[in-house]
Amino acid sequence: MSSRMGGLMLALVFLFLIGPFLIIIAAGMSAGETLAFPPQGLSLRWFWAVFEVESFRASFVLSIVLAVGATLLALVLGVPVAYALARYPLPGGEAMRTLLTSPVIVPAIIVGLALLRYVVIPLDLGIVPALFVAHTALLVPYAVRVVSASLANLRSDIEEAAVLLGANRVQAFFLTVLPNIRNGILAAFILGFVTSFNQVPVSLFLTGPGVSTLPIQMLWYMEFTYDPSIAALSALLALMSMAIVLLAERFLGLSRYV
């Protein structure tokens, strides 16, 4: 295959992967009342309009709070696991590993349904705590995997050196291990945040009147309304993700962890 043909193929692939976003951005800038491309006149009115919709605002806040909270808890649970996997013989061996990675294997929609049927309804639990539990469980394997990757380059003898210089085990971890896996933890946070923020199937059954995450709210809205506001909102979300990813790539080399 000649390199010119390879370049052409690559251009087509990127047109397919990234082109649609350019179209959404353009569609969101329409001045008209209904969704169309090419847009009927240019205006930023729909970009401002999405901020006026109360249900978007509320679900955006919930999505952010949920993503931050679930990611933090997943890290609190996952970092010790990654550390244990790197330093100790794993008790329970393969079975333990399967259990810890099960949230990745189980289709997410099942988790939402199961929590609704067997936790939320019987225990009369609020929807938000259930969302929080489901998102956290989903993120733990990611946190473990990303942090493990950065622990893999760290030899265990630096902790032994710290201990011999008078540090106890806990100090040794916080003074020598943590500073050296900081980038991995930040990368795990960003990936976790993005995953949770964009998550739909888990949240599908765990939403109710007045309580909904942003992606679910968008799905509902587009079912009944055919105006450019979802295009504008999608464009905003795409730009937000791009900004996060570019910053993370610049400072952390995020692509090493994906």
Partner: peptide
Amino acid sequence: LPANRRNIGLVFQSYALFPH
């Protein structure tokens, strides 16, 4: 006696310097 209270120095084969 725990290792951190023995006051015994060790030079590691890999040096084990704190990279950060």
